[in-house]
Design a protein around this nucleic acid. Structure first.
Lengths: 141, 141
DNA sequence: CTCCATGCAAAATATTTGCAATTCA
DNA sequence: TGAATTGCAAATATTTTGCATGGAG
């Protein structure tokens, strides 16, 4: 989903389009890796210097609500945000450059359901993240 | 691994055995669900009233280092700790009672490696958690 | 012109650190 | 006894809230 679509989606929910929000959205959208609120603030200020950290928090909250952004949990912290890719809930994250790639793991759902059954659970959600080293980072060793 | 084993492990690493640590260890060990530092503090104080929250943090740090405890990430927060089960890194968590069950998903490793390959990654770690409703909670509806 | 949105400052949370007193081995 | 451990208080770090001003529609 492009930045323009995001902003349109924003409007259609009754929210206003402001320079502050545009800066946050564009920063997250073009980042290859998940960013913390503080990082977003730093980067987006280059585009909109008046931006306050509080607005970053509030904008992320709305973006998450609209499913345009998702929170990413890693060892280093659980407060990084990444542009959401529809239908691809699984992440592959490079441990070196932190680049995040979505992948389709729909074929895993059946195994997950089976595991749950074995333990008396009805599985409703899952959370899968793979960590490794990407090709680029291996080459630049 | 039993509480006594934990405490022995503690000793063998050069750490001292204290009532405070014993209270923290026993609280985490006997809980069926992951607990936050504050929750551990509350519960463990019943056993050792003088216990300070800071000691809970410091003890958890050591327990994590010794791999006796693991941090659990959920929507509600990322600061809950659960007794670690050796070799079983995957969790099945009840969304209602929060009970956590480890399961063996070693047969998934091959699929994970393959997914990584497809995207140029060499997968080194993974993180999988399933969420659902356990049998007990379904019965008590 | 009317609200929604913003940024500041301050409050609320969560976690870490400095330090004197305590306690295990 | 000596060093590790503790709990308090204070320092940090992170996130949220109150409120007057500014800006989108």
């Amino acid at each position: 989903m492009s930045v323009e679509n995001w902003l349109t989606e924003f409007r259609s929910q009754g929210y206003r389009l402001t320079d502050a929000r545009r800066a946050v959205v564009e920063t997250v959208a073009k980042s290859p890796r998940a960013l913390t609120p503080a990082e977003i603030h730093d980067l987006a200020k280059e585009q909109y210097p008046k931006l306050g950290l509080v607005t970053v928090y509030r904008t992320l909250e709305k973006l998450e609500e609209l499913n345009l952004v998702q929170r990413v949990h890693q060892e280093q912290g659980c407060n990084a945000y990444l542009a959401h890719a529809e239908g691809h809930q699984h992440l592959l994250i490079c441990q070196k450059c932190k680049k995040a790639v979505y992948f389709d793991g729909d074929d895993l759902n059946a195994s997950f359901a089976k595991v749950g059954e074995k333990h008396g659970f009805i599985v409703q959600e899952h959370w899968l993240q793979l960590f490794g080293i990407c090709e680029e980072c291996r080459e630049n060793e």
